[in-house]
Design a protein around this nucleic acid. Structure first.
Length: 300
DNA sequence: AATTCCTTCAACCGCTCCCTT
DNA sequence: GAAGGGAGCGGTTGAAGGAAT
């Protein structure tokens, strides 16, 4: 049996919202709340799909949103969180007051990914490209290695990134660091309930103090932290070269199948509490502790 | 000044989750 | 336990504006 559409496509407006529509939606929600998204457009006099209204509200109209530029600390937090939870944008956004999953996702795709790539770090696995190349090479026969090297030398960073990420899935399962990570998580992912798996990840995200200046460090479990986090200028605006000195040993590119954040409304409430009362990152810590050569000799 | 290319980000789509009946 | 349906997530798209040629 097919699902009924969330709205009648023929009668709904799409595309950019007008200020009038924004006003209608905002004033309706201010008065009646967001109880039933399907009914909201109808009751508010909008020719929009309920989904579209929800998106507009959550990503743009909500009064607690922060529309300013991402700060270095926020970028730092996003990278750290991404290294633990992967593309779970809602979970990451929940740790950044005033930011939406869409904001975080867009910022990751347009800025952070490029910065990492430019630093010679694979944004998917959070490992240096040179490490990835070495790992790939161990799984290939010599002629294939030669071909790979040739291909690598002939590609720009983005193409390299694409090439390597396509390979990643296969070799990742074989390399020790990721194996340890997967072992830790596979139990949670496959042998325990989804709730437990979710809690496992939630527990990796240490509360942080939004007022800043907290000494709470980001809590990578030892088993998963291939990182050695030392002092860093990651995102340091003072030196005018943010992201300039990241270094690191292998990082777990932890990413599991399935949903995490969407678990239930109770958790959403918790998420909001976390959002307003904690801070998962410490701007004085660092993600990578790479030999500088790894960054000075990008694999291009 | 005109055109092309690139970047950004708001919005959409398809899917899954999970609550209710 | 199964089905229906609302809500939310992550991936993708495309319009708009800016930069480069």
């Amino acid at each position: 049996m097919g699902r009924i559409p969330c709205c009648e496509k023929d009668n709904v407006k799409r595309g950019q919202w007008t200020p009038e529509e924004d006003n209608k939606l905002s004033s309706y929600i201010a008065q009646y709340g967001t109880r039933n998204w399907r009914l909201i457009p109808k009751n508010a006099g909008l020719q929009r799909c309920g989904k579209s209204c929800r998106l507009r509200w959550t990503n743009y109209l909500r009064p607690d949103l922060n529309h300013s530029q991402f700060t270095a600390d926020e970028e730092h937090a996003i990278v750290k969180l991404h290294s633990v939870v992967g593309n779970r944008w809602s979970l990451i956004a929940a740790q950044l007051p005033g930011r939406t999953d869409n904001d975080v996702k867009n910022h990751w795709n347009t800025k952070i990914k490029k910065k990492l790539s430019g630093m010679g770090i694979d944004p998917v696995t959070h490992k240096p490209f040179s490490h990835l190349m070495a790992e790939i090479a161990t799984t290939l026969a010599p002629p294939q290695v030669a071909n790979l090297a040739e291909a690598a030398l002939g590609c720009f960073k983005d193409e390299m990134f694409h090439l390597l990420t396509k390979k990643r899935i296969d070799f990742q399962l074989q390399q020790p660091g990721a194996a340890a990570y997967l072992n830790d998580n596979s139990a949670a992912d496959f042998n325990s309930t989804k709730q437990e798996a979710k809690n496992d990840i939630i527990n990796r995200i240490r509360p942080w103090d939004p007022e800043g200046a907290t000494s709470a460090s980001f809590g990578f479990p030892a088993s998963l932290s291939g990182f050695h986090c030392g002092a860093s200028s990651f995102g340091n605006e003072a030196d005018g070269s943010p992201w300039s000195q990241c270094s690191g040993s292998p990082c777990p590119g932890g990413d599991e199948q399935g949903r995490l954040l969407k678990d239930d409304k109770r958790e959403r409430c918790q998420g909001k509490q976390i959002r307003h009362g904690s801070n998962i990152y410490n701007s004085d810590s660092v993600l990578w502790d790479l030999p500088s050569d790894d960054l000075m000799n990008p694999v291009v």
